[in-house]
């Protein structure tokens, strides 16, 4: 990165308090593909002069995959550790790069003592756009067909369908909807800790089923807002050998490209 990204510890040492904590998440920290999304989010935050910091090595898994796989112990242990870190830094507002972190921090942490304003990165970018801090010019995506795959934990789980769509429209692109979208959106197959295991025996992989929905609307870009959906959709595109015609991108990447960051 060509600018410095501060950690909460850096800020503390400087005596400053950032407005928002960027919760990167495990995929965003370690997965090579997802890191690109993380960088795009960081660039947008930097470009819009948003005062933010990350936790760096003090961040841990939120416990979402453990909880959804039934390991409530492990989840609550992770949650309480994270909460004690977050509370020690007196964090007020968190933006996440992943709908799973978003859902867990927002809905499951409060009862355990972690009360923060938690938003998903598409919501933050929408806010930046609506307040004029972010201007999208150029028109790299003008007229391109983009379809949005709703991540379960952003859409059905938390009712956010509009922020990502508004951003796609801001790109001057043509937003095309798959036959199953919004509340009826089909899962990519990664949630509930499926990402970390083989699928049960069946007739088809879920991401292949989902890719058929996407192929039917002939998009040039499949946009998502989740690093796990991104992996599943990318695999789906490869399954149909469409990687030269269809790109799978996070909304943050599309915005960063459009603004030429």
């Amino acid at each position: 990165m060509d600018f410095k990204i501060r950690t909460m510890a850096d800020c503390m040492a400087e005596g400053t308090t950032p407005d928002v904590l960027f919760w990167v998440g495990c995929a965003g920290s370690f997965d090579d593909r997802a890191k690109k999304i993380t960088k795009a989010i960081a660039k947008i935050l930097h470009h819009t002069n948003t005062s933010f910091a990350i936790l760096g090595s003090e961040e841990s898994c939120t416990g979402d995959p453990a909880k959804r796989a039934g390991n409530e112990f492990l989840f609550q242990m992770m949650a309480m550790q994270n909460i004690s870190v977050l509370n020690a830094y007196e964090v007020k507002k968190i933006v996440t790069g992943c709908p799973h972190c978003f859902n867990t921090l927002k809905n499951e942490y409060p009862e355990l003592g972690g009360n923060y304003e938690v938003i998903h990165h598409t919501q933050l970018i929408q806010e930046l756009l609506n307040t004029g801090k972010l201007k999208i010019e150029g028109g790299e995506f003008k007229g391109k067909k983009i379809t949005f795959h709703d991540p379960c934990y952003l859409g059905r789980g938390n009712g956010e369908y509009e922020a990502p769509r508004q951003l796609i429209q801001a790109l001057d692109a043509e937003l095309v909807e798959m036959k199953r979208c919004k509340t009826n959106g089909l899962c990519c197959g990664a949630g509930g800790a499926q990402m970390f295991k083989e699928a049960e025996k069946g007739t088809k992989e879920i991401n292949v089923e989902r890719m058929e929905d996407a192929l039917a609307v002939k998009p040039s870009v499949i946009a998502t807002g989740c690093p796990f959906c991104n992996t599943m959709m990318t695999d789906g595109v490869k399954h149909f050998e469409q990687e030269h015609t269809i790109a799978v991108k996070d909304i943050a990447e599309l915005i960063a490209e459009a603004v030429d960051l």
Binding site: M1, T7, C26, S29, F30, G56, E58, C61
Partner: peptide, 15 residues
């Protein structure tokens, strides 16, 4: 602290 065998020390490597 991550679902993969990765070390917390490398979390901010992307920066």
């Amino acid at each position: 602290g991550a679902p993969w065998a990765m070390s917390a020390m490398n979390r901010a490597d992307w920066t």
